[in-house]
Amino acid sequence: MSDLAGDAEKSPQTKIALRARLLTARRLLSAAERSAAAVKIQDQVRLLVRRTAPRTIAAYVPVGSEPGGSALPYVLAEELPAGGRLLLPILLPDGDLDWAPFSTLAEGPRGLLEPVGPRSGTDAIRGADLVLVPALAVDRTGMRMGRGGGSYDRALSRLPEPGPITVALLHDGEDVDAVPAEPHDRPVMAVMTPTGGFSLRPDPEWTN
C-alpha cells in the first residue's frame, strides 16, 4: 500500500522531479522483472524475520510495481513465531492509517487490498517490533521519500524512541545518495533491495 498523493503536497521541484523519474522507471519494469524482484525481496524478508523474531510486524500489501509483490503479507504470516501477529494498514478518509490483524483481504478505497476485521487504531503501530514500509527512494542518511500523501510519515511519527526496526522496501536504483527532505518527512532505519539486500541507515560508509 503506497503513500497516496493528493493535491495537498507542495513539494520542492527537485523532489517532484525525482519522484516522477522513479515512478516512470517502475512503470517501465516488465512483469518478469517485477516478479523476479519480488521473489528476491520476499526471500530477504524471510531471513530478516527469522533473525529478529518479531512478535508483531506492521507491514503493507504492495500494489502494482511496488517491491515485494502482492504475496508479501502471506510470506510474513508464514514466518511469524507462534502467537505473533501481522498488522496491515487501512486507509482512512483523511489519509491517515488505521491497522488491523491480517486474515482476509478485501478491496478498499482506490482499489487497495485491506485487512477485514476489527481495527486496532492508528496507534497500533507503536506495538510493532518490525515495521516494513513502502518508499520510492531512501538516501544514505535514511531519509525516505514516498508518493506524497504523507500516510506513512504520520505512521512513522507515532513510533516510540527507541522504536522498532523500520525498513523501506525498494527496487534496485532507488537507494540514492540524497533525497530532498521536508519537515514532515520521517527517516527509516534500514532499506532492502533485490540485489543489495538489507542495509542499515545511516550508511556507515557514507558517514565515515
Rank of each mutant, 00 (worst) to 15 (best):
L88A: 07
G84V: 07
A37M: 00
A100L: 06
V131K: 03
P109G: 06
D43N: 12
P93Q: 09
G95D: 04
A25D: 07
V116I: 15
D7V: 10
P118M: 07
E107D: 08
E79H: 07
A36Y: 05
P109D: 11
E107R: 15
R34V: 14
R21F: 06
R126I: 06
K10G: 11
L91A: 09
A59V: 03
I90Q: 00
E79V: 10
V131P: 02
W99M: 08
A135Y: 04
P62H: 11
K10W: 10
P109K: 11
G84T: 09
E79R: 07
I90D: 04
V39D: 11
A71H: 12
L80C: 12
P67I: 08
L136P: 05
R55S: 07
R119N: 09
R26D: 11
P89C: 08
R85N: 01
A137K: 03
D139E: 06
T24M: 13
R126D: 03
L18M: 14
D139C: 01
D7E: 14
A135C: 11
A100T: 03
G117R: 08
A82Y: 08
R50K: 14
V63T: 15
R26M: 12
A36N: 13
R21Y: 02
R51N: 12
E78N: 13
R119F: 04
A17H: 02
V75T: 12
I125V: 15
R51Q: 15
R119P: 01
G108N: 07
P89R: 10
R21A: 15
L80Q: 05
R126L: 05
G84L: 10
E107C: 10
L112A: 03
D43V: 02
A53R: 15
S120C: 13
V61P: 04
G83A: 11
G83C: 07
R27W: 10
V133Y: 05
P115Q: 12
V131T: 03
A82H: 09
G121H: 13
A17F: 00
L80W: 05
L80E: 04
A77D: 14
L86I: 01
E79D: 14
V39A: 14
V49L: 15
P118H: 06
E114K: 02
A8C: 03
G111W: 03
K40H: 08
A32M: 10
E78V: 00
A137F: 01
V61A: 07
L76W: 03
Q44V: 00
A58Q: 04
